[in-house]
Design a protein around this nucleic acid. Sequence first.
DNA 1: TTTGAAATCGCAACCGATTGCATATAAATT
DNA 2: AATTTATATGCAATCGGTTGCGATTTCAAA
Lengths: 344, 344
Amino acid sequence: MKDEKEITIYDLARHLKISAATVSRSLKDHPGISKSTKKKVQDAAKEMGYRSNNFARNLRKQKTNTIGVIVPKLNSYFVSSAIAGMEKIANENGYNLIISQSQESVKKEIANTVTMFNSRVDGLLVSLAFDTENMDHFDLFIDKNIPVVFFDRVYEDSRCLNIVIDNYKNAYDITSHLIEQGCKRIMHIAGNLTRNVYAERCRGYKDALRDAGYAIDDDLLIVNELSEEAGKELGKKILLMDNKPDAVFVANDVCAANCMQVIKAAGYSIPHDIAFAGFNNDPISKIIEPNLTTVNYPCYNMGEMAMRYLITHLTEKGNINNTNKIVLRSEIVVRNSSLKKQID
Amino acid sequence: MKDEKEITIYDLARHLKISAATVSRSLKDHPGISKSTKKKVQDAAKEMGYRSNNFARNLRKQKTNTIGVIVPKLNSYFVSSAIAGMEKIANENGYNLIISQSQESVKKEIANTVTMFNSRVDGLLVSLAFDTENMDHFDLFIDKNIPVVFFDRVYEDSRCLNIVIDNYKNAYDITSHLIEQGCKRIMHIAGNLTRNVYAERCRGYKDALRDAGYAIDDDLLIVNELSEEAGKELGKKILLMDNKPDAVFVANDVCAANCMQVIKAAGYSIPHDIAFAGFNNDPISKIIEPNLTTVNYPCYNMGEMAMRYLITHLTEKGNINNTNKIVLRSEIVVRNSSLKKQID
DNA sequence: TTTGAAATCGCAACCGATTGCATATAAATT
DNA sequence: AATTTATATGCAATCGGTTGCGATTTCAAA
């Protein structure tokens, strides 16, 4: 088991009989060093197995080459896809990722924020917890000019970039689609309405109803956790309703699919008795039967975009950030769960 | 926009008219410092908004408090759950995570390994890519005594810990279950057989057949990518077979579910015409109809265990590692996709 | 040959925390 | 009161790179 000591620029310097400064500059391709010297240094570095020490470098440069990511939960289709996209871009650009989960709790989110701050990340990518109600814990970063980018679950703040899809329009479209299919009592299941994504989807739902001349019935709006369990609960609740909806638009596919199962098991036919629509285009939406009408959410792409933007922003410091919001393309995907005339 | 300078222990020292050494020791709760001094320092630190500089610390201590994680893909149920578990434990113990994906390619895996090495992670958690065939790229770590822990897709090496489930037994059990249900031509779909998980599952499948006195038919063993697309392809392939199987045991739920859909769409009845079984207990297995018989894989738990082990190992350096393999409990979950007598 | 600009390179001071060893003070012992 | 023994704290070197500024060398123009 070899356990050799780490080679430093001083070792290289001694070996080549030049100064450590020259070694450092050569390795960084500094213009003031002659080509021949650079080559000599770089060759020796390779040969001797030198690897640069990031701590020394970071300590000196006050920069970490690390991006922090805070998400509610890692194990969801949306989040894991988005992070996959982020990792790809970060990796390509030589940045590291440190990731933590808020578990849908502001408290943890704040703790994670502090950790990230102390780890001195160069930038932060955040999708907010269910119950986050203000930005105070991000002031740490903003005050220090460390860029914070929100994606999906965002907080509108002129100092931070938001990357989103048009939740309003998609919800409006999907509700309109249900209306076109002849549905009269359309229910909507939302997540916590302080979160933009759910608030926007809810607004789209209501506006679509209103524009179609429908009344808005508060009994048809439910807020829950959008989890598997919440979906099952929802199904039971619907079964107990006297005046049942003839369509249910859920703000997330997982919840929708689990609800559908309960409804189906009780003998109702989807979409004939009750039509369903979800959100996200989770793989589950293509498995549940009938296949779930949903919104195609560009998760991976959103992760890529967010990271790309952040890195560009960090690299071109001079270039003042004048972008405040990026809206990615997304569109509804109509499947059999909402179609009176089935396709196959 | 305040952009105050960072407070260091020297600032605290000057402010309190004591030495930086004392400040450092006080903050770390060193035994040789009086309680009163400690309190004074800690209070001042809080008040002045001091935050410790990890680079300086790491540089000095030659330790990073960072764990590297390399996985094939982030966006799968298994991986995202496992990472969620890892993050939880790491977070609780003050470690950071840096995560990267090999995208199922050794080449990327090697590149990521190097990056991790240069980031000087304190330890590495790895689930191997499809096509990794040797350990050479981990020698960097092993030679330096940096612990490497493999989980799920492991490589048997006496110098590294493996955390797995009993893939063999589960596959054996699930195959036996299919046999008990009266299936005669049981097909198995595996992933790349150089990967332990798929090799073991395949072995379990074969042994179960053999023990039941069945012949092993090579036509009934297929290796594919186990992806959604592969599942659909598989379905088509089965439909074209002259002598169709009466059961299909797939090494992963996603592939199984997608295959089932194709088979169902062609008018076959599951499980009467063809029974199905999968692996992982992915949420999808509870949505597909009929619900999929599968193996309950403790993903989250495996992530927790792997991280916990690694951290313990790092903390108690003296304690020489004498564990070579940890097998987590897992068991088959029988559902309607394989039951001739349906349950509800 | 001289000279001045350009091209190279080295000196040494950082960056911020840790820690072995020495020192100073306080408490305990004889 | 003198001497040990604890208890507290400080000194200064160290971790490995980076970089402003000054020194030296090179080379061509005068």
